[in-house]
């Protein structure tokens, strides 16, 4: 029964993977090949597509694979199964955290993980910028310079024109990208 297989496979992926969507690729690949839902090449195309379709990468990958295996219902089952461990884990954790709210050891732990999380966020921004710059450089130096200027312009807009929503800035950048690259 394909729905049961999809449910078990994606529940397992959701349970045993930590972090963002791209970190999950090896687990996806194992499950997809084991069940013969698609070839490795097809799956790699889906990884690229998942970064372009709106929504979290992991959810997109689940929807694509599920849809390929069993249509819309397959996509729904895969997505639900993927999300379930996340939701249960967070609900369990928040009730524990609530109970030890003012524990000094908990506060010391959070003191440490906040600095680490902060570093991860900076690093993520850096990775996206440097990856995209490397892609631009393959095309021309001019497009890399334009890209760097766009980063500076969007940053300046957030600082000096905070009323403009980030989403509008992304839309504007899409149009600028369409015209200049």
């Amino acid at each position: 029964m394909v729905f049961v297989e999809l449910f078990i496979a994606f529940f397992r992926i959701g349970l045993f993977s930590f972090g963002g969507g791209l970190a999950m690729i090896p687990m996806y690949l194992t499950e997809v090949e084991k069940h013969g839902w698609m070839s490795q090449q097809e799956f790699m195309n889906i990884v690229a597509l998942s970064q372009m379709t709106p929504g979290p990468i992991a959810v997109n990958m689940a929807s694509y694979v599920g849809s390929g295996a069993a249509g819309f219902a397959g996509a729904a089952v895969a997505t639900f199964a993927l999300a379930l461990p996340s939701v249960l884990a967070i609900l369990a954790l928040t009730s524990v955290l609530h109970r030890i709210q003012h524990n000094p050891w908990k506060e010391a732990f959070f003191f440490g993980i906040k600095s680490a999380a902060m570093a991860l966020i900076f690093y993520a921004g850096w990775l996206i910028a440097s990856d995209t710059l490397a892609l631009s450089l393959q095309e021309s130096q001019w497009s890399a310079v334009t890209g760097a200027l766009m980063v500076a312009a969007v940053y300046a807009a957030r600082v000096y024109l905070p009323k403009i929503s980030p989403v509008l800035l992304i839309v504007i950048a899409a149009f600028v990208g369409y015209w200049v690259f």
Binding site: I128, D131, T132, M150, R158, A173, V180
Partner: peptide, 13 residues
């Protein structure tokens, strides 16, 4: 490509 540059700047901000 344009959107990715914008997202990098938004994350930095």
């Amino acid at each position: 490509m344009g959107m990715r540059y914008a997202v990098a700047a938004l994350i930095a901000h």
